[in-house]
Amino acid sequence: MEAKDIIKPENLVYQKSRLMREKTFNFCPGCGHGVVVRTIAEVIEEMGIEHDVIGISPVGCSVFLYDFYNFDVVEAAHGRACAVATGIKRVQPSKYVFTYQGDGDLAAIGTAETMHTCNRGENIVIVFINNGIYGMTGGQMAPTTLEGMKTTTCPRGRDVKTMGYPLNITPLLAQLPGVCYVTRHSVHTPGNVRKLKKALRTAFENQRDKKGTSIVEVVSNCNSGWGMTPKQANEWMVENMFKKYPLGDMKVDGKIVMDMNAPR
């Protein structure tokens, strides 16, 4: 059959979620942010909660999140997304609230807000993109930057003696009783994207069932910051980032399920 005979509405099996606005992403070509942003929209569409959800966009590469979705979004100051989410959730407990944050936003300037929101077991979903760098500001060191990794503020590689160690924050957050679900995923293959989608679904269902805080971490690439093509970046990520930030569930339904003391 000719392609033109196949391309008919009744044969459509996949397309961008209708909850995505017709706005081109500001992300660099091949950036994982785009996939995560779209996957969240797919989950919200399939759960039919677009009229009851409020997203919180951070400062960082995803700072324009509020312009990408066909549902309500509130822009938070850098690092404050979890506090903004708390402020909303406490006056609108029946609404779904999720934050979308990068590693600088969540694990550097926003550490206290993140830690205490999780410690209160705030009934929200935290989507945490870990690409080991500050992308929007042009590639500086982040808390999750790996030892020896080069960035514009550690051009000779991260020296842990003077610049601190890569901060693996989600296992720390998993220790907090208020946190019910902590899982780590990636979007460099379709299989992993589908697993992420299932994890996001679980996270939003946890929120619906008031089980406490759900954290979905996504280890992702930063092509421009790492100075690689998207394909190379994904390969480098698997080789290096996954060693320090292994994928998989860390806490499910309030129970730790990953041996987090395994040497990294």
């Binding site: 404050r80 506090a83 807000e113």
Partner: peptide
């Protein structure tokens, strides 16, 4: 009425920002 002690004034004012964005 929700009453919440935040972990800092930085967090508290951003909780206010969140609550205010919902018109409460």
């Amino acid at each position: 009425m929700a009453v919440l002690q935040a972990e800092s004034e930085v967090s508290a004012i951003n909780m206010v920002y969140g609550g205010a964005s919902t018109g409460h």
